[in-house]
Design a protein around this nucleic acid. Structure first.
Lengths: 334, 334
DNA sequence: CTTCGTCATCGAAGCGCTTCGACGGGCGTC
DNA sequence: GACGCCCGTCGAAGCGCTTCGATGACGAAG
C-alpha cells in the first residue's frame, strides 16, 4: 500500500503501465483475456500508485455498487449481543466477497427500502429479525431488490429466508431431557406479549418439543407460556411443580426468566444437574450466568449472517439459492 | 412515495416538469434561486415519479458520496450493548442529516482506511474505541480523510476527538460518596492488563477522584487496581477493609468485578446503601443487576455518537469544530 | 502467399449527475 | 426611452469508470 496521492484514477494507472484505460479495467475485472506481461505491468502500477477504483464511477458505469445494506432492528427487543454478532458476521463475510455494508435501522421502514433501491446505493439487502406480518416485505417484493431475510414472514413466497430451525431446536431439547432419564418434562415458553408479533418461532419450538416427546413412549410432556417478571416466573414454576410432582426436566425458551426459573427450582428443593434437568434456548450468556451453568441451544447469529450474505451474493450473480434455509441447532453442553 | 419505476432519472423528472435537468438539480440542491412555481412543479414530478438521485452519479459529479463510515471494534473487549447504542445513535443522527452509514470493522485496520479514502466511497469516518497507541491514527492523518475519533490517542494533534470526561466522572463519584457522609473512601480501578492499551481513561478517573477528595478536608482516599477474577476481587476487598477499617465508600471502575465487590461487602457485614456506599462507573446493566442496585456513571454512547456525527458533518461542510470534546458525566441514582 | 480466426489491445460512447458560463427578459434608473 | 442588472433558466462539459465494437498482429489453414 503505497502512499495514495489525491485522486489516482484509472488513467494514471494506464499511463504508468503504458496501456489504455480499458485494458486496466479488463485486468482488474478479468472480463477479457490479457497477456500475462501486460497484466503484471498493470498490477504493479496499481500497487505503486495505491489505486482504488472510484466507487461512484464504478457503480454508475457498471450498475453494481459493491455495497449491500443490512437493516437491523436497533431499538427493538432483540438481544443486543446477538445483533452485534450478526452484524460482525455479515460485515466480515461481505468483505471477504469484496463488498461493503451499509447499516440501516428498521425504523427507516419501507420508505428506506424504496430509497436505497431507487438511488442504487446498494445492490441488495439483508433484513434482520423479520416479523410474521412485516410491512417491509410487501415493499421488498414490489421493488424487486435482491434480498435475504432472517426470519420468516407469513407469506414467504418468492423470498429468500434464513433462520434457525426452531422446530429442530425443540426436538433437541426434548432429546436432551429424555436422554437424561426424564419421563415427565415441560417447555416453558415466552409470554404471549413478547411473541405476538413474531409468533412463528415460538410455535415451532413448541411443536418440535411436543412432537418429539410424543414419539417417546412413557414420556409425559407439557408446554406452557410464561411471563418475564421474576414474581410471575416463580409462581409459574411453583404451580407447575405442584401440578406435576413427577416433573424432572424443563426446557426454557424465554431468556429473561432463566435465572428466576433456576432460583425457583432451588427454592423447591430441586438440584439442577442431578435430580432435575434444565436446558435453555437462548444466548450463551444467559445459560452461563446462572449457577449451575445450563446446556443451551443458541441462535447462531454469525452462521446465519454468513449464509445470508453468501445467498445474497449468489442472487446478485444471477445464481439461484434455496427459498428457505434452516440452520441445524447445536446443543452446547456445560 | 409513488411506485418507482426502474431507473427514474433526473431527465425523466425534468421532462415531466417541463424544465432542464440542471434546473431540477438546482431545485433539489437549492444552490441557485429558482422561481417558486418551477420549484413546485419539479417537486411534484419528483414525488410522482418516486425519484431518488443515483448515489453513484451524484458522488461522481459532486465529489460527495453522502455516506460516512463507522469503524467499530467488533471482536474486541468493548461492551457490546454500548457498541450497539453507539451504532444506533450514529445511524439515526446521520440519517437526520441525510447521510448513510457504512459499517467497517476495526480489523480492516489502516488498509481499510486507505481503501475507503481512495475509492471515495465515503466522505469521512468515525473511529470508535480509539486506543492510546492506535496504528490507524497515523494513516488517518496521512490520508487527510475527514474524521472524528471516539477516545483519545496519545498524540491527538490535529485530530477531532470526542469522549466522556473521565476526570469529571472521577469527581462525580467522589462527590457522591462524600455527600453521603463518607470520610474514608477508595476507588477500585481496573486490572493493569485490561487498560494497558488504553491507559488514558483509567488514569483520568483516578486523578479526578483523588483530586476531588483531596479538596475535601477530613476525607481520606485511596485508589487501587483490581483484577477481574472473582477470587481476586474478594481478596482485594477483604484486604482493603482490613487495612482501612473506617472505609465507608467505594467507587468501582471495573465492570466485571461489580457483583463480586457487592458480594464481598455483604460477606464483611457491610450493608450497602446504609452504612456503606458504592458507586459504579460502567454500563447501566452492571449497576442494575446487583442487589441492591447501585448508582452509576455510564458511557453515554448515544450522545457521543450524535456529537461525533455532527462534528463530522461540520468538518465536511468546511466549518470548524473543537479538537477535543468532553461530555459531562451524569450520575444515575437508583 | 493469401485468407481467415484468435488473441490482445485500443478508442469512444455512455452511465446520471453537478456545475459553470451564457442568455433572455423583466425591472429600476437616469 | 435606452441602458444596465439581476434573476431564473438552459445547454454543455465533465466526473472516472465499464463495455462494446473495431483494429492490428500473428499463426494456422488452404
Amino acid at each position: 500500500m503505497a502512499a495514495p496521492g489525491r485522486g489516482v484514477t484509472i488513467a494514471d494507472v494506464a499511463a504508468r503501465a503504458g496501456v489504455a484505460a480499458s485494458t486496466v479495467s479488463y485486468v482488474l475485472s478479468g472480463k477479457r483475456s490479457i497477456s500475462p506481461d501486460t497484466a503484471r505491468r498493470v498490477m504493479e502500477a496499481v500497487a505503486e500508485l495505491g489505486y482504488h477504483p472510484h466507487a461512484g464511477a464504478r457503480s454508475l458505469a457498471s450498475r453494481r455498487a459493491g455495497v449491500i445494506a443490512m437493516m437491523l432492528p436497533l431499538r427493538d427487543g432483540m438481544h443486543l449481543p446477538v445483533l452485534m454478532q450478526f452484524a460482525s458476521g455479515a460485515v466480515t463475510e461481505a468483505r471477504r466477497q469484496d463488498q461493503d455494508v451499509l447499516l440501516m435501522t428498521a425504523d427507516e421502514g419501507p420508505a428506506g427500502l424504496a430509497r436505497v433501491a431507487a438511488s442504487a446505493i446498494v445492490d441488495g439487502l439483508i433484513l434482520m429479525d423479520v416479523e410474521v406480518r412485516d410491512p417491509r416485505v410487501e415493499t421488498l417484493r414490489r421493488l424487486g431488490l435482491p434480498s435475504v431475510l432472517i426470519g420468516f414472514p407469513a407469506d414467504a413466497e418468492g423470498l429468500t429466508c434464513v433462520d434457525l430451525d426452531f422446530t429442530a431446536a425443540g426436538r433437541v431439547c426434548a432429546d436432551y431431557l429424555v436422554e437424561r432419564g426424564c419421563t415427565d418434562v415441560a417447555l416453558l415458553g415466552a409470554s404471549e406479549a413478547v411473541y405476538e408479533r413474531r409468533t412463528g418461532f415460538a410455535e415451532r419450538v413448541r411443536s418440535g418439543f411436543l412432537n418429539r416427546t410424543a414419539d417417546r413412549p412413557g414420556v409425559a410432556a407439557a408446554a406452557l407460556p410464561c411471563a418475564d417478571e421474576p414474581a410471575a416466573v416463580q409462581r409459574t414454576v411453583k404451580e407447575l411443580l405442584h401440578a406435576r410432582p413427577g416433573l424432572t426436566g424443563l426446557a426454557v425458551h424465554n431468556e429473561p426468566s432463566v435465572p428466576h426459573v433456576v432460583h425457583a427450582l432451588a427454592d423447591a428443593g430441586k438440584s439442577v444437574g442431578e435430580d432435575f434437568h434444565v436446558v435453555v434456548i437462548g444466548p450463551d450468556e444467559v445459560a452461563e450466568r446462572v449457577h449451575p451453568q445450563l446446556p443451551s441451544v443458541l441462535v447462531p447469529a454469525e452462521t446465519l449472517a454468513e449464509i445470508a450474505v453468501r445467498h445474497l451474493m449468489r442472487k446478485l450473480d444471477g445464481l439461484d439459492v434455496p427459498d428457505a434455509t434452516l440452520v441445524e441447532p447445536q446443543l452446547t453442553m456445560r
